[in-house]
Amino acid sequence: MDALVLGLVLGGLYALLAQSFVLTFITTKTLNFAVGEFVALGAFVVLAVAGWSWLPDVGKLAVGVLVAAVVGAAAYRFLVVPFMTEGEHDVRWLLSTVALSFVMLNLITNVEGPSPQRSETARLSGAVDVLGAGVSKQQLLIAVLAVVVTVLLVVASKKTSAGLVMRAVSQDPETTSLMGVSPRLVGMVTYAVAMGIAALTGTLYAATVGASPVMGAPLLVASIAVAVVGGLSSLWGPLLGGALYGVLSEVTSYEFGAIWGETAGLLLVIVVLVWRPQGLLGRRTEVKL
């Protein structure tokens, strides 16, 4: 039971970050492999403004999110767009975002040093009892936020005109441009939102483990796994994928030891990929005329 609750909570963390992958995949069919470094970037920006006592914590979070959003939009414009010009089989963006990941990692390490720094912004201390399991309030906050962010995104995609444009671009970017909407602009906005979410995740996570240049790396593998299991083209996917992945890996490590936890999670990915390559909630891409 404990492992189940802890698994769900952990899955929430992965799900929140997985939303960054899903968002960019839906509108641009690309993934930013530097997401882990945007996690760190957000955490360090918030750390840098932590001393601004006139600004409430929400404001500090917003600064971190905004900076990551701007860098994210620029990354799409200058490191993704130029490397996806040759059609669907052009995946040079994969290399350029991995390169960005290394560059950001080195830059952040040069400026901040390698060791974790304590982050107090938006930090809840203590634990609460959830169905008999002791859960840290901070982790619970992250999991709740994953649900809130997901619901907001789903509602926005169904009910707002920006959401309509997002769905249109995901189905047919070329025709979207014939409707007077630039798919490239939509991509930049999506990257901004997605990297903002990564930065938000980073700040909240840094409150538990400290801010460090490599803090995003362990989250990256798990959140890609979660995004793939749930389906890269589904906004609900991360919650389902996160719950399955989190519970499976927690229960497995509880029963068989820690090293088996992550292995079980990755086995889940393989099983899903074989059985449903588009993910549990994903849509097969339509063949169009």
């Binding site: 309509l164 444009v165 769905r167 249109a168 047919d172 025709t175 169009k288």
Partner: peptide
């Protein structure tokens, strides 16, 4: 376009709404 290229998973109304974007 040739082949019409409606957004396949949008409704008729949503497709027409997308057209209105160009008239903003």
């Amino acid at each position: 376009p040739e082949g019409r290229r409606l957004f396949p998973q949008l409704t008729v109304g949503e497709n027409i709404e997308m057209g209105r974007r160009a008239a903003r």
